[in-house]
Simulated assay, not measured.
Amino acid sequence: MSVEIALSAARVRYGPLEALHGLDLPLPTGAVTVLLGRNGSGRTTALRALAGTVRLASGRVLWRGADVTRLHAHDRARRGLCFVPDLRAVYATLTVAENLDLVTGDRAKALDAYPELAPLLARPAGTLSGGERRMLALSRAVASPARVVLVDEPALGMSPDVSSRTYRLLAALAEEGGAALVLAEQRLPPGLPPGTLVHELRRGSLAFSGEAAELR
């Protein structure tokens, strides 16, 4: 299994606090990887470091072996990285339709994934419920041909049915689209495909690496 993107000896600091302690994190192509951990474990920081929205104090980000540590977040996005954060993931003052046209490039595919958004197209995104905003944010991932897809807490605020559908849609990006899919979660979600990889983080360090079945 080839490595698509990786953190190598990555350290991230927020003022005097170190959030990642020399983390090595290889993430394979065409696979689902879950970064597991409680709040403060470093899982969100790891995603942000991969996406380029926080700087490394030391270490490197490698994308197919090339050092992209100094590459800005928007340049990583142009190269095929899609990052869906847990908060502030939509443009609140724009309508649902404007959000879709701006970030997905394929409104029809996004609405196929989340038909619940169709009657909301004229609504400002800031007026949506939490689950509706999450669907709108995730439509960017499921409708884009990204090589790396990073999602922080995909099912935040969603109903169980929509949550199950979301994990199926995301898993297909790896299994059918060949993307490196990385999910940050507090708990291991149900319904992930066989062979899902898990890296459990505790206080910015790696506590476990293996397949989801081993963790259970």
Score class of each variant (00 low, 15 high):
residue 55 R to D: 10
residue 66 A to G: 01
residue 129 S to E: 11
residue 112 D to L: 07
residue 120 L to N: 02
residue 75 D to Q: 14
residue 206 L to G: 07
residue 16 P to C: 02
residue 94 L to C: 12
residue 166 T to Y: 12
residue 147 R to F: 00
residue 96 V to C: 05
residue 151 V to T: 12
residue 131 G to N: 06
residue 59 G to K: 06
residue 112 D to Y: 00
residue 156 L to S: 04
residue 46 A to K: 11
residue 121 L to R: 02
residue 118 A to Q: 09
residue 185 E to I: 05
residue 117 L to P: 10
residue 60 R to I: 00
residue 118 A to N: 02
residue 6 A to R: 14
residue 57 A to Y: 13
residue 194 P to Y: 13
residue 131 G to P: 12
residue 87 L to G: 00
residue 80 G to Y: 11
residue 146 A to E: 09
residue 103 V to D: 01
residue 104 T to Q: 09
residue 118 A to P: 00
residue 214 E to H: 02
residue 216 R to N: 13
residue 25 L to R: 14
residue 176 E to R: 15
residue 26 P to M: 09
residue 73 A to Y: 09
residue 148 V to W: 06
residue 7 L to R: 03
residue 20 L to W: 11
residue 152 D to L: 11
residue 10 A to Y: 06
residue 64 R to E: 15
residue 87 L to R: 15
residue 140 R to D: 03
residue 149 V to T: 05
residue 86 D to Y: 01
residue 169 L to T: 10
residue 161 D to V: 14
residue 133 R to L: 03
residue 33 T to A: 13
residue 22 G to Y: 04
residue 160 P to A: 11
residue 161 D to C: 03
residue 52 G to S: 07
residue 43 R to C: 07
residue 147 R to P: 05
residue 59 G to D: 10
residue 76 R to Q: 06
residue 96 V to F: 03
residue 132 E to L: 04
residue 105 G to S: 07
residue 103 V to I: 04
residue 197 L to Y: 01
residue 84 V to I: 15
residue 135 M to W: 03
residue 64 R to T: 12
residue 158 M to N: 10
residue 159 S to Y: 05
residue 76 R to T: 02
residue 57 A to C: 06
residue 8 S to C: 01
residue 92 A to P: 08
residue 12 V to Y: 14
residue 178 G to M: 15
residue 19 A to V: 03
residue 122 A to R: 11
residue 104 T to W: 08
residue 107 R to D: 00
residue 106 D to Q: 05
residue 76 R to Y: 06
residue 2 S to F: 00
residue 206 L to R: 14
residue 14 Y to Q: 14
residue 190 P to L: 08
residue 124 P to F: 09
residue 88 R to H: 14
residue 67 D to E: 02
residue 134 R to N: 02
residue 71 L to E: 15
residue 173 L to I: 07
residue 173 L to R: 15
residue 140 R to M: 04
residue 174 A to P: 07
residue 179 A to M: 11
residue 44 T to F: 11
residue 163 S to W: 07
